[in-house]
Nucleic acid binder design. Sequence first.
DNA 1: GTCCGACACTGGTATGACCAGTTTACCTCT
DNA 2: AGAGGTAAACTGGTCATACCAGTGTCGGAC
Lengths: 247, 247
Amino acid sequence: MWTPVRRRSVSDEVFDQLKSRIVRGEMAPGAPLPSERKLAELLGVNRGALREALKRLEQARLVSIQHGGTTRVESFLDTAGMDLLTEMLFTSAGTLDTQVVRSVMEMRSALAPDIARLAALRASEDDKDALLDLVGQMERQARDRGKRQRLAMAFWGTMVAASQNIAYRLAYNTLNRSYQQFFEVMTDVLAAELDDLAAYRAIADAIDRGDTAAAEKRTTALISKGADQVFELMNALEAEATKGDAR
Amino acid sequence: MWTPVRRRSVSDEVFDQLKSRIVRGEMAPGAPLPSERKLAELLGVNRGALREALKRLEQARLVSIQHGGTTRVESFLDTAGMDLLTEMLFTSAGTLDTQVVRSVMEMRSALAPDIARLAALRASEDDKDALLDLVGQMERQARDRGKRQRLAMAFWGTMVAASQNIAYRLAYNTLNRSYQQFFEVMTDVLAAELDDLAAYRAIADAIDRGDTAAAEKRTTALISKGADQVFELMNALEAEATKGDAR
DNA sequence: GTCCGACACTGGTATGACCAGTTTACCTCT
DNA sequence: AGAGGTAAACTGGTCATACCAGTGTCGGAC
């Protein structure tokens, strides 16, 4: 399989650089940015390209721009949206940020059961068929855990759509993007969850017959399997990191 | 009290207009936008200003831009983040979109208990003091429900921070922004929740002594009070709407 | 002292040119 | 006929430059 080359435009580069600096705390909240003209010169880019990046930063609520005034760094922890997760996932050293991973998994654990409940309540016939079909495909891929993981992704995507909850759906989009970044690592860690084909089947069946309680309960059980493994791994990573610090 | 005038820059105007058209379905997913040069002329604005808007739309994942190719409308329900909630809250007719409101409240109900649980697990001494102090202030504002609501906001904000979960915190930022849009309406609807000062006290106490189970249980009970009221109101609104259609 | 206005900043918009990819159509060679 | 190559006409990306529109400051008039 070939991976397409990704071209990075000047404005994207500038956006990433500033975003990274802000999130990593190199520029404190409240601190003023250089004026557009100066900053453009410092970065060696045209002012227009810089402005495109700044506008994006403003929309992500990482900076606030004031006509005639100063552009300042926002206290993004109180303003930014979930898109920041992908940025915060890795530390400046390039290692996984265990706290962020834990956060994502906790959110997944909190949302999935309610998504299942609502799906059981509101799923259309098409949704039900799609879910049952996906489970069938997973059962036929008993060997290949990687393929099953992709099918599981589709399963959850269908669940979220079936839940008819737009907030869940949008949150899912972002959440998904963030843990597709440690996809390969996850496949092994989530083994306990991905191997439990009976659970997926039980959930799909519960939704098919509109049994909200069963759907919720089964989902809680399934999701916690993967979550527990990840929590364990994160704890181990943290223990190792502090041991490294102690040297 | 004076409300400051809000200036809208050209690029903001363009962004809002395009965003609105896309979300309202006037431009179907996959449909190509006119070229930048044409679109700029059609809108009567400079190409640079238009590009700033397009870049923002791209970041919000409402359109996808390809160098040398065409700019196309994304199927945003599968790509966009929670920021869209504020845009989708009101229908084109200007009325509340009941499904979106229901979604937001459902998400609140799912997250709040787990936030409380984690807060009980991880809150710092400062967090605990702040929570107890806020509850004290609420009790002293027994008369003014509006003030209590603002204190309740601060209460939840502190809870989320205390939970040490970055995903919850970022989701909360966006969620908050969306239901500050129907703030006044909410104050009355959430009366049952806002009047239950004992519950807030109980939650703060549970967190103070690190009792995760109690914190979670009390929060579930409290949150459901407001949620039930809102669900009831939304059902009533929907019934009225269908009755209107039937005429 | 207070007031006020010029001035020097800041970000916002506009032109017009050119660079850099993509697509199409046509042409050439095999 | 088909494969390959090439030029032209699109598309978005970047640039330099000028000017408009708000904000803040500083100094002079009163």
